[in-house]
Design a protein around this nucleic acid. Structure first.
Lengths: 133, 133
DNA sequence: CGGTATCCGTTGCGATACTG
DNA sequence: CAGTATCGCAACGGATACCG
């Protein structure tokens, strides 16, 4: 058998990448890359931390999130959640009360995305901790 | 049966996120998040485009990459590849020739990472194109 | 409580010129 | 060919003050 596992991985990768990203070059022109745009939202300094907290606690109010995501400012939390809301990753629910109450949670899409991101993170962390040993 | 698929997804996500990211809060302090750091490298404007090109063509020289990644400057390509090399995502091979020849390729780790990223991208693009219809 | 407005230092990055 | 050096503008993001 002359086809190794490494060869198979290379071929699989080539095929997958070719599907959208190389063979049909529009996605590559001018630095446009849809997945990067999605992930850029999910990744700008604070987003993943917010996503993971919402993934764990399901529903959090503004100041609960602010407390859980250590170091974030009100401004950046506001900006971050707004971006995530626009991408339909997060849902913002406002209650008409005084004082105001706002609850954030993940959309089904946000849940799926978070799960995929945490899978990626856990894969990386396991490699990382293996190296430490 | 009162447990829905959505419930299962929520529980699974909570468990996965809790494993590293919430239950053991060190990863959340001061905005530190290992997966974000990895992805930040893989995502800063040009990295994914470079990774996907290398995933497809396997080996590319500096100016081949520059040509394929439309719009990138020599400076940014240099910076990007240096970062990817530091993270052991990409390997840089220099030939002692005149004029110089330098070849870039993915490490096994870089291949795995690229495959995971492209899987994520394809999942997203399929949702996206469904919406269009 | 849940934000917004403003200021301002830091970083990112493109353009251009230059080099071994 | 494969970069590096320098410059300068633009975007990011922290601190502080303020608001419905």
């Amino acid at each position: 058998m002359s086809v190794t596992n490494a060869d198979n991985q290379e071929l699989r990768l080539k095929k997958k990448v070719g599907k959208y990203y190389v063979a049909s070059q529009p996605y590559l022109e001018d630095g446009f890359c849809p997945i990067r745009n999605l992930l850029a939202s999910a990744l700008d300094k604070w987003s993943m931390l917010c996503l993971f907290n919402l993934g764990y606690y399901k529903v959090l109010r503004f100041n609960e999130l602010k407390k859980n995501v250590t170091g974030i400012s009100a401004r950046m939390l506001s900006v971050t959640m707004k971006k995530l809301e626009e991408q339909e990753i997060v849902v913002r629910k406002v209650y008409a009360e005084v004082p105001p109450r706002v609850e954030y949670s993940l959309t089904p899409f946000g849940q799926e995305l978070s799960e995929k991101l945490v899978d990626l993170g856990n894969w990386y962390l396991e490699l990382y901790t293996q190296k430490e040993d």
